[in-house]
Design a binder for these strands. Sequence first.
DNA 1: GCGACAG
DNA 2: ATCTTGTCGC
Length: 219
Amino acid sequence: MLKIRDLHSWPSTESEAVAIQQRLRPLVRVETPTATPRTAAGLDVAYRDGDALVAVVTVLDIATLAVLDSVVLRSTTTFPYVPGLFAFREAPALLRALERLTVLPDVLLCDGQGLAHPRRFGLACHLGVLTELPSIGVGKTPMGPFDAPEDVRGAWTPLALDNDVVGRALRTQAGVKPVFVSVGHRYDLDAACALVLRLAPRYRLPETTRTADHLGRIN
DNA sequence: GCGACAG
DNA sequence: ATCTTGTCGC
């Protein structure tokens, strides 16, 4: 159902990984989404003892937050955790999980950064470019400094890296830390923040990531 | 050279 | 990410 573009093989060294990011970075497209999305996917990976991991993808109906589909895939670690090269650790398993989806989502919400990345090619960009699906990065920790948005749901401040605005620190609830939203592929920052707010009516993180995280813990 | 650094 | 007690709040 979902086609994964064969743009590169999975590297085993950091320098190869960086070269792939630099080669794929120009393929990212920032654009206003054509239509209002009806479904959104949450992607997450849980780690187990040793090199075992569990990749989870859930598809929710944005209007009702009902879970329409979910895939839980057990796999194993292929690349160490290196800040800036996160996709090479999590994307292989997440892509295999995405291929097993029955309901194709209108947009991907990734657990990590998109353009808010040192080379402007975080996990959300990587998954977006390889699937050609619109994608958004929702991180719990920023990769750079930021000014705290006011403590009101919906408040935000720009996230800058070097001299570019690469994302936003977005307050999804008063009294909790903001989340860090950036474009992954085929989306824009305003629409991304609006969607994250709709998906997080009650908690800090969007329901998509919460359900995916939950499934990863119990499986 | 040293520290910082998505999950 | 994961390892973990108690505590505050709905």
